[in-house]
Design a protein around this nucleic acid. Structure first.
Lengths: 338, 338
DNA sequence: CTGAAAGCGCTTACAG
DNA sequence: CTGAAAGCGCTTACAG
């Protein structure tokens, strides 16, 4: 690969580098005839302007970093696809920051903004991924940044969220309406804000229905299918078993259904299962999974749109966008059989 | 966010920019006392070297682009996670190139290498994603590049592959051994090399077993679940129905199983279904999906390792790495019931 | 062990 | 409409 620079094109077409640059980025400033000469040289050589040269000069990278715990996760994958789509439209490239749930890797990606390698950052973990000087106000230290999925605990951060607590209440109301009273919860890691909020919703719904919260019915998983399987095994060992299980992710619900099948329980005949997310595979399970849908596509799109505004120095950008969840009733939940 | 440059650190610590640079990248060249002064200023300001400045000077971006048809796909997601992992270890960042099956977007990502924005490229589509000058030998025009999943038709391209044809033969042999003779194929898009090879394997196995290839038994999908569903519907309309279906992806197999359930067929009682890939959800289906496993993790890791060598200007790098597939027998296939 | 200087590839205000 | 010049932030060969 032979690298060709703006100077080569300038020489080849007999104009200055400045004119080459103008031809490529602001062609209206250049006469038709020189434009033609320049474009000929560009086409012949396959010249592409070096973005680092341009970025160094303009102080803009046209990159965006996305920090996510795990790209393999369907929820994250759906969101990032929407982001990528929106970013490309606006001329931005996406730097992938898969932290693999490794907190130290947060700052590795966060530094990309600090070091000018990216103009903005999208954060799907509950932490600000760069070092903050505690002596100075946070507001002044924040680059263009939007947070989603797991809320960062700061009012200065722009967010696109769903009402996790309300989503959980919807799931519970569905199970309660079906007559269930012994309803277990398979939650995510205790420190995740999404799990905290959904657990609040779980408890709120029970209390409002006049049902006491039974801590043996609350099992902790890690949002992955295997942990849902194990959580379900624990619940099945209980002397008094739940008749319905609210899993805080579809993956855990899928794992739970696998455990139930393994031990010959019928879903929803013996136990109803409801998930959270509505990933593609939810509707491909047997029985098809009832769940609370998150508008993943919209979340990604909105995040990127807000970030775009922030990077453009736009004033009055939405600080807090809340998107609706929706109960999707399928086959994995059914009336209590007594 | 206040940007701080190397000059600021130089001034703050009373040394030259050169010394600051050395302190950060080759500390052994600097005396302990100046090192301390410099690091103090660095820590106080939170200075991170601007990578564009460095890249422009060193002519290295430390970026790698990954061109993939769809990041939402579990196969791609698993591969990219492995890539990201390997890349980060070596100090490279990953630029995500999700083409969304849009051929024009290929070159958008390919140009990132041409324009110096990335030092190498990983291509999971069957096309070289940048313009090639047909008058010059291809070899001289290729940047560090590794291809996988969908083979590019050129011997100059470094590849990490599986033997798709052999994988298909394994799937077919399994079905044949179970006594099936009426075996349908749900293939991917006709122009994809993976589908061509797997179709060859399908036909080869049939012919070797003395069974005639029946074109009504070959349905084209797009590797996604919905297309598997529709393909199965078509097969069920046939007067003489297949008793087993070999789907060229797990997603299509999952779709096919959904169609079978929808129309009250038992899997594998009425129809056996086998997939290809072994994505996470394959073993979470009911019945659990029998499939041909691709070593996705290994594929990603190997791709990146080879690219790393290529970018380091390493000589004698593997041109062609073939990884093994494996038949994973689970519950969706069973003996022919007559 | 350290500094001054050059230069990577671009863009843009300025002058004509 | 075009060119010469400066400068973005870094690194490194050279000199001391």
């Amino acid at each position: 690969m032979v690298k060709v620079s703006i100077k080569d094109i300038a020489k080849l077409s007999g104009v200055s580098a400045a004119t080459v640059s103008r031809t490529l980025s602001k062609p209206s400033l250049v006469s038709k005839s020189t434009r033609k000469k320049v474009m000929k040289a560009v086409d012949e050589t396959g010249y592409k302007p070096n973005r680092f040269g341009a970025s160094l000069r303009t102080q803009k990278s046209n990159n965006v970093v996305v920090v996510m715990p795990d790209i393999t996760n369907q929820v994250n994958a759906a969101i990032i696809r929407a982001i990528e789509n929106e970013a490309t439209k606006a001329g931005y490239s996406v730097l992938l920051g898969d932290t693999q749930n490794n907190i130290e890797r947060d700052s590795y990606y966060g530094d990309m903004v600090t070091s000018g390698q990216a103009d903005g950052i999208l954060v799907f973990t509950p932490r600000i991924p760069f070092t903050i000087n505690k002596d100075k106000p946070l507001r002044e230290q924040l680059p263009p940044m939007v947070n989603s999925c797991e809320e960062i605990d700061s009012e200065y951060v722009h967010k696109v969220v769903i009402d996790n607590q309300l989503g959980a209440v919807k799931a519970m109301q569905h199970l309660l309406e079906l007559g269930h009273t012994k309803i277990a919860a398979v939650k995510g890691p205790s420190m995740t804000p999404s799990t905290k909020a959904r657990l609040d919703g779980y408890k709120q719904a029970l209390i409002e229905a006049g049902i006491e919260v039974d801590n043996r019915f609350i099992i902790t998983g890690d949002y992955g299918p295997e942990s849902g399987f194990q959580a379900m095994e624990k619940l099945l060992r209980l002397k008094e078993r739940p008749t319905a299980v609210f899993c805080f992710s579809d993956d855990m619900a899928i794992g739970a259904m696998n455990a139930l099948r393994e031990y010959d329980y019928d879903v929803p005949g013996d136990v109803s299962v409801i998930g959270f997310d509505d990933i593609t595979y939810a509707s491909l399970m047997s029985p098809k999974l009832t769940t609370i849908r998150q508008p993943l596509d919209q979340m990604g799109t909105q995040c990127m749109q807000i970030l775009l505004k922030l990077m453009n120095g736009n004033k009055d950008v939405e600080k807090y966008v809340e998107l609706p969840t929706e109960l999707i009733v399928r086959q994995s939940t059914g009336p209590l059989v007594s």
